[in-house]
């Protein structure tokens, strides 16, 4: 059980725990952001090949000495998507706070049934 795998799964689950247990909306968004970081870490650690170096093919590094570049390309996109989602979520929360004057999830329940 590799430490990075363990860390990524732990981060994902702590993020999920925050969303499930915490009542403050901003805390939930912190949990969401942590979950996304955990997923990125998982993606990278899946693409890592032990004993190889970064995929910059400068003079010293030959193709069979480099790590898998694809997960790194994917994570580049995933991180920025994570930030975009967080920025959007926060602006929604700002609007929400302006109208509802509360951040407690139990009170944000006007739309139900």
């Amino acid at each position: 059980m590799n430490p990075y795998y363990f860390a990524s799964i732990a981060l994902i689950l702590i993020g999920l725990y925050a969303i499930l247990a915490k009542r403050n909306v901003l805390k939930m968004l912190v949990g969401l952001s942590i979950m996304e970081t955990g997923v990125n870490l998982l993606l990278i650690s899946v693409g890592y090949v032990s004993g190889r170096s970064a995929p910059i093919l400068s003079e010293g590094i030959t193709p069979d000495r480099a790590v898998d570049p694809i997960p790194q390309a994917l994570v580049l996109t995933a991180i920025v998507i994570g930030v975009a989602t967080t920025a959007m979520a926060l602006s929604v929360v700002i609007n929400l706070y302006e109208k509802y004057k509360t951040l407690n999830v139990e009170e944000i329940r006007r739309l139900r049934g």
């Binding site: 990075y4 860390a7 970081t37 990125n40 870490l41 990278i44 650690s45 693409g47 890592y48 190889r52 170096s53 970064a54 995929p55 910059i56 790590v67 997960p71 790194q72 994570v75 580049l76 991180i79 920025v80 994570g82 930030v83």
Partner: peptide, 21 residues
Amino acid sequence: ASIAFFFLQAPDVAMVEAAIG
């Protein structure tokens, strides 16, 4: 996480994570 990316031989991602994340 950015440091972990560095150790996982992913410098690009480390920089992006640090700068944006």
